[in-house]
């Protein structure tokens, strides 16, 4: 981001410099991130309210979720966050191959995360654990939760929270596929990597949301 970049082809006409353009985009992204935080905050508030009302239900039901799968997913998502940070580090040093490699790794980690999520969801659906009124659990692991009052609330909150989070992961995978394509085409350099930086910020936020979801839902 030197002043020599003043006539960079990616400089839009209404900005004075690449620096101004980069700073503006980044501020915009941070503002977008807090809208994401507030979007999720609704779910966290619902979680807290019901937990304060029915602590024993939430404590018991966190046992219904497999902490091993959740834990592995946490590590997978942390690894993907690391590869994203690494990809930005590489492009800042004009290492395009490093960028593309790490972005593809990120997509793979995200894919693993979604696959494990799929295993968890299908395991619950096959035992009648659905969000909302369709909730009718049966079988070894879930059957005894059938008549626990406010258990449907717990699972609804679980499905909605992880569901919205999962949608964000899917969107992130799409974005990273696009980044990998553009990176391979050679669109980015240490002079211009705004899309990588912004997508990275988005991805870290998705990771942070999961950092909170994991203990709240699976552990405590």
């Amino acid at each position: 981001m030197s002043t020599a970049s003043a006539h960079h082809p990616k400089l839009q006409h209404h900005f004075v410099s690449m620096d101004q353009q980069f700073d503006a985009s980044k501020l915009g992204m941070w503002l977008f991130l807090i809208t994401e935080i507030l979007l999720f905050s609704g779910m966290f508030v619902a979680y807290t309210v019901y937990r304060v009302w029915h602590p024993e239900v939430f404590e018991a039901l966190s046992g219904a979720l497999d902490w091993r799968l959740g834990g592995v997913n946490t590590l997978v998502l942390l690894a993907s966050s690391f590869t994203v940070a690494a990809s930005i580090h590489h492009i800042q040093n004009d290492n395009r191959k490093g960028l593309v490699r790490n972005v593809i790794l990120t997509i793979i980690f995200a894919g693993v995360f979604m696959f494990i999520k799929y295993l968890e969801y299908s395991g619950k659906f096959s035992h009648g654990v659905f969000p909302g009124e369709a909730y009718a659990p049966f079988g070894d692991h879930y059957g005894h939760y059938a008549d626990v009052p406010y258990a449907p609330q717990f699972f609804s909150i679980y499905f909605v929270m992880t569901g919205i989070h999962g949608v964000h992961v899917l969107v992130g995978m799409g974005i990273f596929a696009w980044l990998a394509f553009r990176g391979a085409r050679g669109d980015f350099s240490s002079e211009y990597y705004t899309p990588v930086e912004l997508s990275g910020l988005y991805w870290h936020l998705v990771d942070i949301i999961w950092i909170f979801l994991f203990p709240l839902l699976y552990l405590i």
Partner: peptide, 14 residues
């Protein structure tokens, strides 16, 4: 500051 603002308002909401 933007991030802290977000956290602050989540706490207010809660």
């Amino acid at each position: 500051i933007v991030l802290l603002l977000g956290v602050l308002f989540v706490s207010i909401f809660l």
